[in-house]
Structures are given as structure tokens and as C-alpha cells.
């Protein structure tokens, strides 16, 4: 049953990947990519990696698609890709084949799927599964590995989101005064936005109004319940960001900026990472190593060293959620307004 399911979903994924390459209309490609992400999410879920599936669904199929659509909105949807020369094509094909053969040859060497005796299942994973509850009071091992055992990685993953936002923002941002100069001196170098029509649809506004509170409530649940069920700061943050993007799409750009202004976005994105790193620094001052949450029991009321870890994990998840939420929103605003922050999708 599961094998048949795997074969179907994997062949569909392959189909989507090839289709996305061949469709000349970029909007079509993006939609196919969204389908690709959903199918990937199914595959992860079948493999028992629910947290990964969750992330894929929210990031890959959700906001990822929105970003691509808003990029197409402010650039072009016609693919003007020039075909490479035959020799170059053959060369690239050969490279891909060599890598493919190398990868396929390893398949026979790999342990069976779900083999309990394979090194990956006996060494570190076994330790985490056996000790997570005793050492951190967190039943969802993924969360305890992510936020505590390997919390230092996660802090930098949050940083990656921060960098993505700051990078996109600083590359695209065009100041108003500068825009005027550019418009008068060299209008050809500027990408021109398509003529903008104010969409003022009561149906869309009402529908999104109905959806947003539930999305946000669910997102908060995902963040707070990450200790016990799949989810956590990343996924919850993305859903929160998506709810803001939904509002921005259904209203106009002015409304979008009134939710969070440009300054506030930058402030909050930094604040999220700062919460994470700040918890680490507090551990310094309480005499522990960086991110050694157990020493936090000295300042948290009614906790022992183990419960302190659990609480601190919630703290860092909130930091992650804040950064992810606001950067998703900020990236969307930058892309859809082409960096002008005046009008957009």
C-alpha cells in the first residue's frame, strides 16, 4: 500500500519538476511548483517526518508560491530564456548523468528503509529518543533536538531568515527621492510596474476577514504546542506571516503598511533573533555555557533545571516565530512593491 503510494507520488513529483521546466508561462511554472511542494509534503508525511512535511507545506507550497507570484507581478511572466548551444547542453547532461550514476550506485549500499540496526538509528537518534523526556521534559523529540540539543544550529537558521529579509530588503529598497531622480534621468533602466488598479471587492475582504483570526489562532497553537505535537516556531511563524500577507493582498498597500510599517518590520525581525540569542546570553551571565538553558532555573520561578529547558525552548520558539512572521511579511512587501513600499499587489 505505502509502496504503491510512494511510486505514485514520486512519479507525480518528477512530472511536476519536468513540467515546471517546460512551461513557458512563468505563472504556470509557479503553480506547478506549488503542486510539487504539496506532493513533497505528502512524501515526507509518508516517511514519518511530520515536522518536515509541515514545514514544506507552509514554506514550500505556501509562502514560497506567494513570493514567486509577487516577483512575477513586479517583473514579467513571459519566459525569455535563450536556448543554450548544443555542446553546452550535452556537457550539462553529461555532468547530471555522472552525478546521477554516483547517487544511484550508493542506493545498494544504503541500509533498508526503517532498519532499526542502521547507524543512523542506533547512535545519536537512539540517545535523543531515550533521553529527551528525562533531560528536557519535551515529548516531541524533533522539538527538543531542534531547540535544545542542536539549538545553536536553529539560532543560525533563524539568522538565515533574518539575512534573507535584510538582503532582499536592502537590494530592492528604493528611496522616494531617489526614485524621482531615476525616473527623470533614466526611465529605461527602471522596471515599470504594470498599471495598478485598486481592487475593492467586498467579497474578498469579508472572506479574508473571516479567515485571518482562525489562521492566527491556529498559528499560535502551532507555536505554543510545538513541545507536544508537530510544529514550532518556524511553521507557526510562517502561518502568522501568511495571515498578514492575506490581509495585504485583499486590501491595498496602504492598509498593508498600516499593519506593520517599514521601520517596525526591521525592528521586529531583529528583535526575534535577539530574543533567541538573548536567552543564550542570559545563560552566560548565570554561569552556564551559551544556550545552556538549565541555568535559567535560577531566575525562572518554580522550575528545576529540566523544566527550565522546556520553558526556554518555548521562549526561543517565540523568537523564531516573530522573526519568521515579520520577515515573510517584509519579503512579500519588498517583492510586490518592487522595493518602493508605496503600492503593490
Amino acid at each position: 500500500m505505502i509502496l504503491g503510494f510512494d511510486i505514485i507520488s514520486l512519479s507525480l513529483i518528477l512530472l511536476c519538476a519536468v513540467l515546471a521546466l517546460f512551461i513557458r508561462d512563468l505563472m504556470g511554472s509557479v503553480i506547478v511548483f506549488g503542486a510539487y511542494s504539496f506532493l513533497m509534503c505528502v512524501v515526507w508525511a509518508c516517511n514519518g517526518a511530520i515536522d518536515v512535511a509541515f514545514t514544506e507545506a507552509t514554506v514550500g507550497a505556501g509562502v514560497g508560491t506567494v513570493f514567486l507570484v509577487s516577483t512575477i507581478y513586479s517583473t514579467t511572466r513571459i519566459d525569455t530564456f535563450k536556448k543554450n548551444r548544443l555542446l553546452k547542453q550535452l556537457f550539462m547532461f553529461a555532468v547530471v548523468c555522472v552525478v546521477g550514476v554516483l547517487l544511484l550506485k550508493t542506493v545498494t549500499d544504503l541500509p533498508q528503509w526503517g532498519d532499526a540496526g542502521s547507524p543512523a538509528n542506533t547512535h545519536l537518534s537512539a540517545y535523543y529518543i531515550e533521553n529527551s523526556i528525562d533531560q528536557t521534559h519535551v515529548p516531541n523529540v524533533v522539538t527538543s533536538v531542534l531547540a535544545d540539543y542542536r539549538g545553536f544550529d536553529t539560532m543560525f537558521e533563524t539568522c538565515v531568515v533574518f539575512v534573507a529579509f535584510i538582503g532582499i530588503f536592502s537590494l530592492l529598497r528604493i528611496r522616494k527621492s531617489k526614485t524621482k531622480n531615476a525616473a527623470t534621468t533614466s526611465p529605461t533602466t527602471e522596471l515599470t510596474l504594470p498599471p495598478h488598479q485598486e481592487v475593492d471587492s467586498l467579497i474578498i475582504k469579508t472572506a479574508s476577514h473571516l479567515m485571518v483570526p482562525f489562521m492566527q489562532l491556529f498559528a499560535l497553537y502551532v507555536v505554543a504546542h510545538g513541545h507536544y505535537s508537530p510544529g514550532g516556531g518556524f511553521q507557526g511563524g510562517v502561518i502568522l506571516g501568511a495571515s498578514l500577507i492575506l490581509l495585504a493582498v485583499s486590501y491595498n498597500f496602504k492598509k498593508a503598511l498600516s499593519i506593520l510599517s517599514e521601520k517596525k518590520i526591521i525592528l521586529l525581525v531583529s528583535l526575534g533573533v535577539l530574543i533567541y540569542a538573548g536567552i543564550g546570553v542570559i545563560c552566560f551571565f548565570l554561569g552556564g555555557n551559551f544556550l545552556d538553558y538549565s541555568v535559567l532555573h535560577k531566575i525562572l520561578p518554580a522550575t528545576d533545571t529540566i523544566m527550565a529547558r522546556s520553558h526556554a525552548m518555548l521562549g526561543v520558539e517565540i523568537g523564531v516565530a516573530l522573526t519568521v512572521m515579520v520577515s515573510m511579511y517584509g519579503i512579500y512587501l519588498s517583492l510586490s512593491s518592487n522595493g518602493r513600499f508605496d503600492k503593490g499587489l
Binding site: I166, I266, L267, A277
Partner: peptide, 24 residues
Amino acid sequence: EQAPALIVVIPLISALFITIIGLY
């Protein structure tokens, strides 16, 4: 004994502060 971590943590935190203070 915290020096190895501080080498990395100081620039990380300061990058965040630079972003915030840079607004003003």
C-alpha cells in the same frame, strides 16, 4: 573559558543591534 563562543556571539548580537540602531 567562554571565549570560543564569544568570538561568534559578539558579532551576531552586534549585527542585530546595528540593524536596530541603524534605523535611527
